[in-house]
Structure formats: structure tokens, C-alpha cells
Design a binder for these strands. Structure first.
Length: 356
DNA sequence: ATCTTACACATGCT
DNA sequence: TCAGGCATGTGTAAGAT
């Protein structure tokens, strides 16, 4: 979806159209303390980008409209969009060959219904765009490719409201001239290491000795780099049944080491996590606490319970226990804290199988 | 001797 | 001067078979 959160706000508030719109995740610390989640293309003209501090965005364009993110609402729109798109995917025994990878992105397998014809794929992509526009008044950008990696990368070529097809015969011309940082899966750290090795373009990477890549990045990642740079990606679509972890993280009202202040926030976050757990009727077995200190260093500690549970009391207890461990070994004030649960399982009849 | 699990941490994407 | 949410992989240590 194109500039998804901001596009939804535009749709909901027609008087905003034409203006620069910036959707922010705010920490509550100050008027505009937080980061830009996304912004419309008008805002991008003034240099505003996702991830940038909101205060900086304000400096770049004081006239822009700054809105707080309404995540639950965007999720409800996302659910409807995904249902529309899903209906265009190949159908297998298990259901549609469809993979939602984020709140606004998804992969569809259409190999069967196109018989591998990329011209047909273009038609289907166009249909999807029209359907979404008709039903939800939102635009999206479609990428077609012989695998997920290429589909994802081609979706970025023409934005917003675009469609790009990269058939196997156009693969090398598309991929090789690009900087390695453009390859989906290569971030800052990897791009930096590659540059030190003299690898700048994707072509450089594709031609590089795989043994050398493995020695720097490990077996899995080394082989992946070599393959990906050649446009090879055999990963199948993964049907996802909700996330495998549920977490909440937030910024403290001020940097602190005060147990009471921190527990107060952690308890709220734990409550939110329990709500989500309840709505999906799940139990959890692991609890992870995240701390980000005033120097922006991140630390995590986790506990795995003997059996899955879904009691709020247990989550609170474990959370406090881990917090105390953190506090006894920390001298730098905390800025943000988070709670996350994992090893999720569908609930049984009792609170826990071994609880009675 | 080998397989499995727990944990901390790095990396990447939005 | 900077938000929140998730996935996946790796190294190491400890426990189980």
C-alpha cells in the first residue's frame, strides 16, 4: 500500500488533501517527541522521511499536518484490503497461496492461474489495483517477479500507484546495476561490511566468491547473499496464522531507574499484551523484557516457563522479577521498556494443563 | 558423542 | 534528537539422550 497510514488519514479527512501529512508515533515526552511513521508524497517533497524525528520533520516543513498514528484503525483497514487481495491468489488444498508480511504488504502466488505468463500477471496486478481503489479508495504498488525477492523489489520501482513486471529475461538488467543496499535483506550493517570488501553493486556481490562471503557472514547468510544477488530465491510463501510473538514497548515519562515508575509502565504494557493474548485465545511460555537506556543501548532478558500459561498475575510476576535483575545490574537510566511473550499456544480447557 | 533447549544479542523491515 | 512491532539467525552454555 502506498504511504498507507497517511493515505488512510487523507481518505478519512478530505480537507487534508493537498497538504503535507505526517503520521507520527509519539512518545508523549514533549509536543513532537517521536518519530515519523509515514508521510504522504507532498510531505516527501520537503525531505521528510519515515523514521526521522518528528521535530526534524517540523523544521523541514512547519506547514505540514502532524497526526498521531491510529494503529488499531489502520489494522482494521488493512484486514479488509488483505481480504480483497487474497481473493486473487492461487487456491491450494490448504487455502489461498497468500502471505501477509506486514500491515500493508503481502505476497500472492499466481503461478497456477497465469501458467507462468507474465503478461497475464500484469493484468491480474492491474485488476487488484483497481479493485482496491474502488472498494477502499486507496492506491497500491504492485511488483511481479519469478520469486518473492524479485516481486518485492520490483514493487518499489514505480511508486505510488504503479505496477512493474520483472520477468526472468529482464532480471539481470534490473538487479545488477543496483547498489547492494537496495537488495531486500541487506541493511546498514551488511552494506557497510560489503563495502569494506570492495563489493558495491549487486553484480559485484553475485560474482563474489561464496566461500569468502560465508567466512564473513556465516553459512546461511553467505549462501543467501550469493543467491539473492543472482535473483535466486526459493523461499515458499508462508501462510501466517497471526504473529508468533506479542509485545508492547513504550517510552518512560522521563529517564529513570525508579522501580515504581518503571513498574507502573510495565504493568500497563503487560495488560495490553494480555488483552491481545485473550482476543486470540493464546497462552504463552516465554516472557522477554526489553530495556533501552538513555544512551539508546538495548538489552533483553527472557524467561521460559515449564508450561504455557495465560494468567496476567504470572506475566506480572515474571516481569517484575526480570525488572529487578535489570535494576540490580544497571547504572544508566532507562528510557524505554517493553514486554513481549512468545512460544504461543492455543489455550486448553484450564488456565494451564498443570494448574489444578 | 550428539541432539535439544534456553538465552542474549545482532540484523533487518516498517 | 529517535517509535513501536515483528521475524530470523548465531554463538554459547547447559541439559537430555
Amino acid at each position: 500500500m502506498d504511504y498507507f497510514f497517511a493515505a488512510i488519514e487523507e481518505r478519512e479527512k478530505p480537507d487534508l488533501r493537498g497538504k503535507a501529512i505526517v503520521v507520527c508515533m509519539l512518545s508523549g515526552r514533549g509536543e513532537l517527541s517521536g518519530a515519523v511513521s509515514t508521510c504522504n508524497y507532498t510531505a516527501r517533497e520537503s525531505g521528510i522521511r519515515a523514521g526521522m524525528p518528528c521535530s526534524k520533520a517540523k523544521k523541514l516543513n512547519p506547514e505540514a499536518v502532524f497526526l498521531p498514528a491510529r494503529k488499531d484503525f489502520y489494522t482494521s483497514v488493512s484486514d479488509r484490503v488483505m481480504e480483497i487481495i487474497r481473493s486473487y491468489a492461487d487456491v491450494r488444498e490448504t487455502g489461498e497461496a497468500f502471505e501477509q508480511i506486514s500491515i500493508d504488504e503481502a505476497f500472492l502466488e499466481i503461478t497456477e492461474k497465469t501458467g507462468g505468463d507474465f503478461n497475464l500477471a500484469f493484468e491480474i496486478g492491474t485488476q487488484i489495483k483497481n479493485d482496491v481503489k474502488d472498494k477502499e479508495k486507496l492506491t497500491c504498488s504492485v511488483g511481479v517477479g519469478p520469486n518473492k525477492l524479485i516481486a518485492k523489489m520490483s514493487s518499489s520501482v514505480q511508486k505510488p500507484d504503479g505496477i512493474t513486471v520483472i520477468s526472468p529475461d529482464k532480471l539481470e538488467n534490473f538487479l545488477w546495476p543496483l547498489k547492494v543496499s537496495k537488495l531486500w535483506g541487506i541493511g546498514n550493517v551488511t552494506a557497510g561490511k560489503l563495502q569494506e570488501m570492495g563489493i558495491v553493486t549487486i553484480k559485484d556481490l553475485a560474482e563474489h566468491d561464496v566461500i569468502d562471503l560465508i567466512s564473513t557472514f556465516g553459512k546461511t547468510r553467505g549462501i543467501w547473499l550469493k543467491q539473492a544477488a543472482s535473483g535466486i530465491d526459493d523461499s515458499p510463501l508462508k501462510e501466517r496464522d497471526g504473529s508468533e510473538q506479542i509485545g508492547r514497548i513504550a517510552t518512560l515519562p522521563e529517564d529513570t531507574l525508579d522501580v515504581n515508575l518503571i513498574s507502573q509502565l510495565l504493568d500497563r504494557l503487560a495488560g495490553d499484551v494480555i488483552s491481545k493474548l485473550d482476543s486470540r485465545e493464546l497462552s504463552f511460555r516465554t516472557v522477554t523484557i526489553t530495556v533501552i537506556n538513555s544512551k539508546f543501548r538495548m538489552y533483553t532478558k527472557s524467561r521460559t516457563l515449564n508450561h504455557p500459561v495465560y494468567s496476567k498475575e504470572t506475566l506480572l510476576e515474571v516481569t517484575r522479577e526480570i525488572l529487578n535483575e535489570f535494576l540490580s545490574e544497571s547504572r544508566t537510566e532507562f528510557r524505554r521498556v517493553g514486554v513481549r511473550v512468545g512460544e504461543l499456544q492455543k489455550r486448553m480447557g484450564q488456565k494451564s494443563l498443570f494448574d489444578y
